[in-house]
Amino acid sequence: MNKVTPEQIDALLPQTQCGLCGYGGCMPYAEAMVFEAAPINLCPPGGVHTLRELGRLMNQDPEPYVSEMEHKAKPPMLAVIREAECIGCTKCIQACPVDAILGSAKQMHTIISAECTGCELCVPPCPVDCIDILIQPDAAQIELEKKSRARQRFRERQERLAMENAEKKTLLHKNSLAKKKTYIHDAIARVKARKAQRHAPDKQGLR
């Protein structure tokens, strides 16, 4: 029997990237199931349907978890900003795992409904509590196309953040080297100045 891959598991997950499973997104949870034996019952947005799909794929019995999942399952959600109350702090933009929020500092923000996964991660950092989380009617689960987009946007955001962190580290390293060179240059100059002072002729002794 072929070993289950994280990609196979990730394909079954709802791609909300909400972190309710305790991991940093759907793919990290999928990797944890493969490499760390994480349980199959940690995805409330996936509900009972995803639980049973994961059970079939992982060759595990999902039935002991069904009752619990029925109580903690979350329907598809959608975030909406009350734009008149938004102060443009950008904290929700920084929190969104799929870059589904548009706006800039001190400007009104808005959520791209077609891209929002309803993860709710934008709610806690909002200092004025102007974000509502609404249940999406007539949607049993995120559509296949939307799941694919959410997965791609999450990956692109992770790559962008990794690149930004790498650039920051490079800049810090360059600044550190520049400061070190300046320090060494100044230290050498001080030593040379002291040597020159010691070897300078005593003008009073020459009179």
Score class of each variant (00 low, 15 high):
3 K>G: 03
3 K>R: 15
5 T>P: 07
5 T>E: 02
6 P>G: 00
6 P>V: 02
6 P>K: 04
7 E>P: 00
11 A>Y: 07
12 L>C: 03
13 L>K: 12
14 P>C: 11
14 P>Y: 06
17 Q>T: 03
18 C>K: 04
20 L>Y: 09
20 L>I: 10
21 C>I: 13
21 C>W: 03
23 Y>K: 09
24 G>E: 06
24 G>D: 12
24 G>Q: 13
27 M>Y: 12
27 M>G: 01
28 P>A: 13
29 Y>C: 04
30 A>S: 09
31 E>N: 07
33 M>Q: 09
39 P>T: 11
40 I>S: 09
41 N>A: 04
42 L>W: 08
43 C>P: 00
47 G>M: 03
47 G>P: 01
48 V>D: 00
49 H>C: 08
55 G>E: 02
55 G>N: 04
58 M>R: 15
58 M>C: 10
62 P>S: 07
63 E>I: 06
64 P>E: 05
66 V>S: 00
66 V>A: 01
67 S>N: 07
68 E>H: 11
69 M>H: 05
69 M>N: 01
72 K>R: 15
75 P>I: 05
76 P>F: 14
77 M>Q: 13
77 M>R: 14
78 L>Q: 15
83 E>R: 14
83 E>M: 15
85 E>V: 09
86 C>D: 10
86 C>P: 05
87 I>E: 14
87 I>W: 09
88 G>L: 12
89 C>L: 07
91 K>H: 06
93 I>H: 02
94 Q>G: 07
95 A>W: 01
96 C>T: 01
99 D>F: 09
100 A>N: 03
100 A>I: 03
100 A>H: 07
100 A>C: 09
100 A>K: 00
102 L>D: 09
109 H>F: 00
110 T>P: 00
111 I>Y: 02
111 I>N: 00
113 S>Y: 03
113 S>K: 15
114 A>Q: 06
115 E>M: 13
116 C>I: 02
116 C>F: 04
116 C>Y: 08
116 C>S: 00
120 E>M: 13
120 E>F: 06
120 E>A: 11
121 L>C: 07
123 V>N: 03
123 V>I: 15
125 P>H: 10
125 P>C: 02
129 D>S: 09
129 D>Q: 13
129 D>L: 04
130 C>N: 02
131 I>D: 01
133 I>T: 15
135 I>E: 15
136 Q>V: 14
141 Q>F: 08
143 E>I: 07
144 L>T: 11
145 E>S: 12
147 K>A: 06
149 R>T: 14
151 R>T: 07
151 R>F: 06
152 Q>K: 14
153 R>D: 08
154 F>D: 03
155 R>P: 02
156 E>V: 08
157 R>H: 05
158 Q>C: 14
158 Q>Y: 01
158 Q>R: 14
158 Q>D: 05
160 R>M: 14
162 A>R: 13
164 E>W: 04
164 E>Q: 14
165 N>R: 14
168 K>M: 12
168 K>F: 15
170 T>I: 01
172 L>N: 14
174 K>W: 05
175 N>A: 12
178 A>E: 12
179 K>R: 06
181 K>L: 13
182 T>H: 05
182 T>M: 05
187 A>E: 10
199 H>L: 11
201 P>F: 04
201 P>L: 02
203 K>Y: 02
204 Q>F: 14
204 Q>T: 09
205 G>R: 05
